[in-house]
Write a protein that binds this DNA or RNA. Structure first.
Lengths: 197, 197
DNA sequence: TTCGTAACTTAACAGTGTTAACTTGACTGA
DNA sequence: TCAGTCAAGTTAACACTGTTAAGTTACGAA
């Protein structure tokens, strides 16, 4: 295994074991028994290294989302399944999720912003499915791109409330997830509103 | 003005000007022309200092939320108003918002977790209002605490997608906010579902 | 065999939070 | 008035951080 691969796999180990905040160049190097500066022969800087890890994780998430989309019958079930996959991924890979979606680009200024766009491919999938739902007269008519972002923002909200430990202990986590996804998917469906107020 | 107050106000200035990541004890001290260790005479550590700032900010947010709740007529309008206030606060105070809701307690291990609960008072307000809406047969019947968290998670999703710069440039930010809040508030209303699929 | 280069090293810089030990100045009790 | 106490500040230091510059070493080709 090349040193570059060792750096990546050791980084991932540390990331999972100790979290993003504890991942340092020196710690990675120490664990491989190599000097810290050697990492710079294979990666421009820490941001570059982290983004390389990110790209692998985002690939995995997108594969899982795609599989969920394909296994569901009809837009509503598909959106529900992909929502569940998304939330599950976030909770099962908290450290990766944090880097993927909870780190501000400003904190990684030296890495091309273009790369951040890869983290958005998932929304294209959602937008597609919402478009189909609208055409099938199952979803309320609205702009699919905007609706997909709105849907994603809500899913991200669920994950991040849990990961950031802002959920009250009185609230059961699984109930919370189920209730939230129910509300979110229901929100897409065509319905007769009862006039507010 | 006491040194303690100077530390707090200078911290806030740096926080707004340069962001959470650039706020350091030495920088605060340098700006007041005092030694870095003097800060430790007034605050146990950096976490303590940051939490003190947090408590002031959260007070402001809660005042604004309360005002919104009181100015609206009926549960639906009230929830919409408080949602708008929340999102606006997040976007107008990005640095404070980040510390309040986007920092993991694990990153501030030395400060009592109890203090994080203050950041939750807002949900009590939401839960109250949802309870009223359910009793008035305007909102779908569900557990108010869980529904309030779900609502808050969705609002947090909106704010954090924008602050984390994960919103596509094709999507207009204000449209996105409006669409999302529409969907979220509509999701609370009683409706006749058209069977999915 | 010499040259060039890739892959590594050590030493150093500037920054971080934090602690221990020291100084300074003002107020207090005898 | 003078010693004692104590709070509020100081400097020096430790153990970290990312990163760069310069030096070494080993190997493969001409």
């Amino acid at each position: 295994m090349s040193l570059k691969d060792q750096i990546l796999s050791t980084s991932r180990t540390i990331l999972k074991r100790e979290g993003f905040g504890k991942l340092s160049m020196r710690k990675i190097a120490r664990e491989i028994a190599v000097s810290a500066t050697s990492i710079y022969l294979h990666f421009d800087n820490k941001d570059h290294l982290i983004h390389t890890l990110m790209e692998e994780s985002i690939g995995e998430l997108h594969r899982e989302m795609r599989a969920a989309l394909e296994s569901g019958h009809g837009p509503a079930e598909r959106v529900r399944l992909v929502a569940e996959v998304y939330v599950t991924f976030g909770l099962e890979h908290p450290q990766e999720y944090e880097v993927l979606f909870m780190v501000r680009p400003e904190e990684m200024p030296r890495y091309p912003k273009e790369k951040f766009r890869k983290a958005r491919i998932g929304y294209e999938m959602l937008a597609d499915e919402i478009h189909k739902g609208v055409e099938a007269a199952i979803f309320e008519k609205r702009d699919p791109v905007s609706a997909a972002y709105s849907l994603w923002a809500q899913l991200h909200g669920i994950v991040s409330v849990i990961l950031n430990r802002r959920l009250d202990t009185r609230v059961d986590q699984n109930d919370f997830i189920k209730t939230s996804i129910d509300t979110i998917v229901d929100g897409l469906l065509i319905r007769d509103r009862i006039p507010a107020n």
